[in-house]
């Protein structure tokens, strides 16, 4: 039980660190290591990583949007066939979360 608590804490910490590490595959590596070290099952590892990384990404992007340039978000949306801030947010969370999910899946697979 304690281990699960730490697992959550480490995943949250890694998801936040990943927002500042300038390697796009950092979530993959961190999730792989975390899932390898903690004794969690595949289902738990991948869903927790997907959820927490996606939430961290959503918080970061929403903060960037509310404090930064809304015009640029609109312009980027236009490049991607006119999608809105929410669309861009969703895609960002998806890519960030799924990259972490893949790392978690591989981490559990290697451990097992």
């Amino acid at each position: 039980m304690k281990s699960i608590k730490y697992f959550y804490l480490v995943v949250i910490a890694c998801s936040l660190m990943g927002l500042f590490i300038q390697l796009w595959f950092a979530p993959f590596v961190m999730a792989l290591v975390t899932s390898y070290l903690f004794d969690v099952n595949t289902k738990q590892a991948i869903w927790v990583h997907l959820g927490i990384y996606a939430i961290a990404c959503a918080l970061f992007c929403t903060y960037a949007y509310t404090t930064g340039s809304k015009e640029l978000v609109t312009m980027i949306g236009e490049i991607f066939k006119g999608i809105s801030f929410l669309g861009l947010l969703l895609l960002s969370c998806l890519f960030y979360g799924v990259t972490a999910l893949m790392g978690a899946w591989v981490g559990v697979a290697i451990r097992n």
Partner: peptide
């Protein structure tokens, strides 16, 4: 653009949104 790079909150366009 490479999607993970471009949409990465740490690396991609969100950085430009934050600090144009």
């Amino acid at each position: 653009p490479p999607l993970a790079k471009f949409f990465s909150p740490a690396f991609g366009f969100w950085k430009n949104v934050q600090h144009p």
